[in-house]
Design a protein around this nucleic acid. Sequence first.
DNA 1: TATTTTATCGACTATGTGTCTATTAAGCAA
DNA 2: TTGCTTAATAGACACATAGTCGATAAAATA
Lengths: 184, 184
Amino acid sequence: MSIHKKQDPRALRTKKMLKNAVFSLLSENQDVAQLSVQKITSRAELNRATFYLHYEDINDLLSQIVQEIFDELSSKTEPLLQMKNLDKQEHLLGFLDYVYEYRKIFAVFIEHAEFKNSLFEFLKNVIHMRRSERNIATTENTVALEIMAASLLGIINWWIKDGIHYSSEYIAKQITSMYKKKPL
Amino acid sequence: MSIHKKQDPRALRTKKMLKNAVFSLLSENQDVAQLSVQKITSRAELNRATFYLHYEDINDLLSQIVQEIFDELSSKTEPLLQMKNLDKQEHLLGFLDYVYEYRKIFAVFIEHAEFKNSLFEFLKNVIHMRRSERNIATTENTVALEIMAASLLGIINWWIKDGIHYSSEYIAKQITSMYKKKPL
DNA sequence: TATTTTATCGACTATGTGTCTATTAAGCAA
DNA sequence: TTGCTTAATAGACACATAGTCGATAAAATA
């Protein structure tokens, strides 16, 4: 954030316009794979060469967008996780509420490998925090952290793509009733 | 199979060569998205125009490959599912063994939307069969079929992509110990 | 104001798609 | 075997896209 050396306002403006163009295009066709540098710069009303002054390729731009999404996700969910007196299901529900709020963005970006990885790491982190907080032994007899996270990722992926008519409350209930131990 | 009207042997040969070219290319770069009609026909040593005599586009070809993969998966796992005297975990293990055998193909094609959908439907079907077989009420108090299938899909996705050093036995054990009710 | 940085324009090479026509070759059926 | 049918090839076409380059104009800043 403030660590970065101050950038040329023209560069900042251009980058914002390119990102806005990406969201504008994605809101239409809902498909990351159909993006092209031409479409993005055309939508942003910028020259195509300008794109390459700021990003290596489309993936570079998408990576930075994903980074920003998860910076926000972390800053919004961390205070929730600090509240140790919350019920088992309230943490999960708080997270699912956030996912629901950004379900359209999530549904598009979940196809992007880096977004998927970030979400996976995020889930692992949250599960790990919850476990150590409740003093659950992480070495013996415990379901592997990664398998639990992969399972949750699968459910979230399904939810935002094909099952978004279910409420976050319902999903939270199903999840907690499915596992032997509460994941979040 | 034998229902189809007999096809021109030249067409059969061409289609087989194109499919082989796809597998050949995928064994090198492991990425469906990097395929092109030019690369495929060049690898198959066929004219590019010939491709369009048999397939609409790359997705059409991939769809037919995926179809064949699941035809084989079904024919190999169905006899296993008919054996009603098997232990809870043996069904799951038999399926995971099949996935392990074809893990390289699976890891590549799991990125393909149609493959993912087919696998999801397959999992739903198997869970449903197991449940009705064991007379589990599907309406009351039971975890939604789709959520369970989505969860398993997430685990399988993780396993074949990032956790294939774990044995199918270990994965089966983790899965059965994670859920309150055995999924398969 | 003078220097640096950014943005634009046009051009170029390269790869890819999908279609089309004409021609050659292989399969099949009377 | 001959003749019809279908498949495969070759080359061309218009079009979209990627990534780079040099020259020029415009904005930011020291």
